[in-house]
Design a protein around this nucleic acid. Sequence first.
DNA 1: AAACACACTAGAATAATTCTAAACTATTGA
DNA 2: TCAATAGTTTAGAATTATTCTAGTGTGTTT
Lengths: 139, 139
Amino acid sequence: MVRAMRDHSKAVERLRAAGLRPTRQRVELAGLLFKGPHRHVTAESLHEEASGQEMKISLATIYNTLHQFTHAGLLRQVVVDAARGYFDTNTGDHQHFFLEEEGRLIDIPGEAIAVSGIPAPPPGMAVDRVDVVVRVKRS
Amino acid sequence: MVRAMRDHSKAVERLRAAGLRPTRQRVELAGLLFKGPHRHVTAESLHEEASGQEMKISLATIYNTLHQFTHAGLLRQVVVDAARGYFDTNTGDHQHFFLEEEGRLIDIPGEAIAVSGIPAPPPGMAVDRVDVVVRVKRS
DNA sequence: AAACACACTAGAATAATTCTAAACTATTGA
DNA sequence: TCAATAGTTTAGAATTATTCTAGTGTGTTT
């Protein structure tokens, strides 16, 4: 009970800090996403997970929420596969292995990897973010 | 006429070398894709271009052909944006700037950029390819 | 507790892509 | 040269992921 309260209020705080109203749906999804270790989800996978835990949240809300969380910097979107957006709870500096056959992502810590020699962006443009995807296959 | 013949037979050679039958559609698309300097296309953009030049090629064939060319190593697919696959005629070692507002790609030469410190892939897996996308925005 | 702005939802709509099955065409070998 | 055949193209339907719409519900502020 105490524990449940703590988790819940942590999610509420997190949402408030991000300028998002702590609605029931957002709090529940934040619970799933940020309770444990970092993870990668798709809208569909998160929706199934929530439904499996008797949370009543529409798929449209999952999409909205994932994008809102992303805008707020709580998630980061990783694009590896046309037509499938993965959202990562780890927004820190890191990159990914992408297992092509399985469609699965594995983190590569930011300290491990370095990209050097990026040319100056076109005039008037600034680097927003550098994504590295290391595609791997069964050998 | 002589020139046209030469271009045409180069495309045919290229396709034969890749193990693809030089059908009318494939030859025409190869003409568009490989005639000039390297370029980035989507299925839709290539279809419009072909249609604009009175080539009668269905969109389904454009999709098939882009994927066949990609398997054959004639193109490389760049994934930057969920739900939009860009195909690049430059299959050599290079990376991309992605202009987020415009949805446009700009090449970064392979010599310029270097990725170091990639950890060993999971056991039984081998690196297929490393993609770097430098996302830029108006500053 | 009322009022307001914002959020949620089901279901329709959209967009990109893939599938299907019938019609066509390049290649092969007689 | 001309079938046979194996691979290719096509229109249109189907699928998949995602976004939109507009009506209902809820958190916040006073």
